[in-house]
Nucleic acid binder design. Structure first.
Length: 474
DNA sequence: ATGTAC
């Protein structure tokens, strides 16, 4: 920290005297040495106001936990957790932090839980860990799906051999910039707005709450948002012909997108988590796993809203893919897409269950999926093997190695430039928190899930667009 | 991940 922040400054930020102020000062003593004091102040203010967003932060989680605990004193009428919970399978045991395992242990103790699994890219999240799969009996957990409902991958493989990509950087860059929009709160207005059948879905009329969100959904249709979302050109390599996809051995130009249901889904998630927490009182350690009975009005409303958010996320990808396919004048040979933040009704060992995948790729037998690496590491087109112990699931990426805060502190701009140059990747936007070094090694993660998926083809990013880091600043 | 409220 370039200037000292005192207890007085913290009090002005709203930190109450006592344990929390002490913890904050302790953290400041040992961290953020290279960061401007006003940046650190902004960060602390965020922790104070939105502590739930910092529960997986290596440095700030202690402070965030203390703030949440102080605001949520224990109350009565609480649903009891199960003492001897069922076990679950962990894939890639060695790569997974304790925080994620602890969260999964708690999720297994819910009275509605039937089975669980942890994917090799798992890390601590909010409620259910990212990379957590949970099968419940007739209950839906809004935070078992996550804030970005229907967050998904979409891949279009074009009839363009690799050799026609090179030398056309300017064209690919121009179209990528012209037809994508990034950053929290970003939208289109007037005639810029995209059209899609999803806008006519009768489900927008299911409740007044959903009806109110139609305008926002329309304006944000075809936008990508922020965080780890991206739109990228790359080369996909089929080492051999795939009969099922009917695609020959070779290297093709492809488009890969990662984004979700934008403000629409986030609003649905926030609303129904709040409702679930009011109805379903759980002990403090499980508070974010509040669930809705599928037979209740609220449960049914969430189910409709969640599915609409999933279809909306899919529509956003479709709009982006259509615009870019047209812009480069290509024909799509194969399209593959999959949600990785969602819940499905699936049959497991003869019983119909609600399978929540929060940052996990569906991997039922023969089911196609996409597991991205990072902006420089390869992604993989996979085919599920239908492994029951993973509840027909696989990882949804490499998983973070560093929290965003840690990445910003420890990775430099020149580190980032060097690794991009090394891999011959052009980057538009993105902050240091999305640097490849902030992610686990995708090859290790793939090696930990050979029982779960077969690799069909390998995707190498060539030109990546993400949100500018400025778009996340307050 | 989102975008409001501090």
């Amino acid at each position: 920290m370039k200037t000292e922040i005192t207890g007085k400054t913290l009090k002005a930020l709203g930190f109450a005297e006592g344990k929390i102020l002490g913890l904050a000062l302790e953290i400041l003593k040992n961290n953020f040495q290279d960061i401007e004091a006003n940046e650190v102040q902004k960060l602390l203010k965020k922790v104070k106001n939105y502590p739930e967003n910092f529960l997986d932060d290596e440095i700030l989680s202690v402070l965030a936990t203390a703030i949440i605990e102080e605001a949520n004193p224990r109350s009565d009428g609480i649903i009891e957790l199960i003492a001897n919970a069922k076990t679950y399978t962990v894939f890639g045991e060695g790569y997974i932090e304790d925080g994620a395992k602890n969260q999964m242990n708690i999720a297994m103790k819910l009275p509605v839980t039937e089975a669980g699994a942890l994917m090799p890219d798992a890390h601590q999240g909010y409620g259910l860990p990212i990379g957590g799969v949970l099968a419940t009996r007739n209950a839906i957990i809004p935070y078992g799906v996550g804030v970005d409902i229907g967050c998904r991958m979409a891949l279009s493989i074009f009839d363009i051999p690799e050799k026609y990509y090179f030398g056309k950087d300017a064209m690919y860059k121009r179209e990528l910039i012209a037809h994508t929009k990034f950053g929290a709160g970003q939208n289109y207005s007037g005639n810029e707005r995209a059209d899609h059948d999803i806008l006519d879905s009768d489900d927008f009329n299911a409740t007044p709450f959903l009806k109110n969100l139609h305008g926002k959904a329309w304006a944000q249709l075809g936008t990508s948002g922020g965080g780890n979302h991206f739109v990228e050109w790359g080369i996909i390599d089929f080492a051999e012909r795939d009969e099922i996809l009917n695609i020959d051995k070779g290297r093709y130009v492809a488009l890969l997108t990662h984004s979700g249901s934008r403000g629409f889904g986030a609003t649905v998630a926030g609303q129904y988590t709040k409702i679930a927490k009011e109805i379903c009182k759980l002990p403090k350690e499980a508070i974010n796993l509040a669930y809705l009975d599928m037979n209740s009005a609220e449960g049914q409303e969430y189910w409709i809203a969640m599915n609409l958010a999933g279809d909306y996320a899919s529509a956003c990808h479709e709009v982006i893919h259509k615009k870019l396919t047209k812009a480069i004048g290509a024909k799509v040979l194969v399209k593959v897409e999959n949600h990785h933040n969602f819940a499905w009704k699936e049959t497991l060992n003869g019983e119909e269950l609600i399978v929540h995948r929060k940052g996990a790729t569906p991997a039922g037998k023969g089911v196609m999926g996409i597991i991205p690496g990072s902006m420089t590491a390869p992604g993989f087109l996979v085919r599920g093997k239908g492994e029951t112990s993973s509840i027909n699931s696989a990882s949804h990426g490499a998983g973070r190695l560093m929290s965003r805060t840690k990445a910003i502190q420890s990775i430099t701009k020149s580190d980032m430039k060097a690794i991009l140059k090394d891999h011959n990747v052009t980057l538009i936007g993105a902050g240091l928190d999305e640097a490849p070094m902030a992610y686990k090694d995708i090859n290790q993660v793939m090696a930990a899930q050979t029982e779960l998926v077969d690799v069909i083809a390998k995707f190498e990013p060539k030109m990546v667009r993400m949100a500018d880091d400025g778009s996340r600043e307050d």
